[in-house]
Write a protein that binds this DNA or RNA. Structure first.
Lengths: 210, 210
DNA sequence: GTCTATAGCTTGATAGAC
DNA sequence: GTCTATCAAGCTATAGAC
């Protein structure tokens, strides 16, 4: 116990306690859930005591909320700056999906937490509006598909259904990424599956791949 | 409190306490998570006291495990008896998906629990092998697709990728079903999206729908 | 089988010294 | 800012009467 705390104390010199609490809390919330991740375990892992945590964040909810706000802001950033190329609908779709996929891969613990809070039981965690991010992503895909149909790049069809097809494989890829035991669908595989779908959506007279 | 318990006691006459504990526990585990659903809340909701629960199930883990075993056995049943028609690959695929979808719709709380334990943090819940069910379902879809390709019903292609596409929309449909605020993808919608995908997989000379 | 009563522990949170 | 020491409340679980 004392040895562990000494080692942790050394690390404290590198980055501030405040940031370390955030890092450790995210990992524990993501892997054990909001209810099962205890304040004690968080502070023990960091190598500090409980009052420090309460000094910075007020209470457990405050810590959780700050984590949510920080990482949600990053998603907003990623989703808003997603279209600066005026290339084909196919390329824009693949770019958007790739960007989101990389974002999830680089912030696995947060997305793990987000997914389980969104789809799963609240566990007493404070409410957080994740629905809007799902909606934004869904709408962005649908818009590109509709533009692709309008320009004649894709065959005419129910753009709503086509959107679900795309979102389905992206969702699976994200979830497998989040589960993390082993990445079954990785970046290139997702792109290849996307190519397969888009080949099927494409007008017969269009070029097949690039 | 006393009024509530009296009302609950009346209900106890209809079905045994043991079954009522199982019903209530499933609902609470699914909506609050294993850690956040307390023994107290379970027994209070049923209208009994804690020792009765421990009499039947030993401890909280025992209650959880019995729930898992019962409902997992039903999945096995549903997955094993899924192909008695020797119709087209398209029809077999649609049948399989429809059967699973109905199964999820009829046992929403269990699947909600299953999904969140599988994809999310363990919350201290005892381990349960859900991976095998995902694998079985995945393999069943893949097998039908490969048979469809072999018989010439589907275009040749990477059956692995095609399987992910199908599983993607089914996964989304299940998750939207489980979330439950509102069913975005319902039974017929899923079948229509499946038709869209299968139209794309189908050989050009084959019939389009039926 | 079901209860009352309670043990024994862990939780989130705080008062007050330094 | 960070600690020691501690609290009240909540948790799982049990002993023992009926």
């Amino acid at each position: 116990m004392t040895i562990k705390q000494l080692k942790a104390k050394e690390r404290n010199l590198e980055s501030g306690s405040r940031q370390q609490i955030l890092d450790v809390a995210l990992k524990l919330f993501a892997h054990k859930g909001y209810a099962a991740a205890t304040v004690r375990e968080i502070v023990d892992t960091v190598g500090i005591t409980a009052p420090s945590l309460y000094y910075y964040f007020g209470n457990k909810e405050g810590l959780y909320m700050e984590l949510m706000q920080t990482h949600c802001a990053r998603i907003d950033q990623a989703l808003e700056s997603h279209m600066h190329t005026s290339s084909s609908a196919r390329e824009r779709l693949k770019d958007l999906v790739d960007k989101i996929f990389l974002h999830v891969a680089n912030d696995r613990d947060f997305f793990r937490l987000m997914f389980t809070v969104y789809y799963g039981p609240s566990q007493g965690a404070p409410y957080c509006d994740f629905l809007s991010y799902h909606a934004k992503f869904h709408a962005a895909i649908k818009k590109i598909i509709e533009e692709g149909i309008a320009s004649g790049e894709f065959k005419p069809g129910n753009s709503g259904y086509m959107t679900w097809v795309i979102r389905g494989v992206v969702q699976l890829a994200m979830e497998e990424q989040i589960k993390g035991d082993r990445k079954i669908i990785e970046r290139q595989t997702l792109q290849k599956i996307l190519d397969l779908i888009l080949d099927l959506f494409q007008q017969p007279n269009g070029k097949s791949k690039e």
